[in-house]
């Protein structure tokens, strides 16, 4: 237990060392999570749009009926 508390004390610099590591972890995780979320959300949106889109064959068919 003593070894652990001296580890967290960091020779009196604990108040500077741990916030440094904590900040790095928080910022890096935040950037990573937001990147994963936005990639997923936008790829889902794209999938939906592509599904909604009529297939090429059908579009050509409607164009032909319009032309005739």
């Amino acid at each position: 237990m003593d070894a652990l508390s001296s580890f967290f004390a960091m020779g009196g610099y604990g108040g500077y060392v741990w916030p440094s590591y904590g900040l790095a972890v928080v910022v890096m995780v935040a950037v990573l999570v937001s990147s994963i979320r936005s990639a997923k959300a936008r790829e889902r949106e794209l999938d939906l749009l592509q599904q909604m889109r009529p297939s090429r064959a059908r579009r050509r068919a409607t164009q032909e009926t319009k032309a005739s």
Partner: peptide, 27 residues
């Protein structure tokens, strides 16, 4: 390596967004 991971994710996201924009414009 973390930069590579995030770069891939964000570029994928940007590509999807660009395609969505193009599709919407076409619509």
């Amino acid at each position: 390596a973390y930069w590579v991971v995030v770069l891939i994710l964000r570029t994928r996201s940007e590509i999807a967004a660009a395609k969505v924009r193009t599709l919407r414009m076409a619509q």
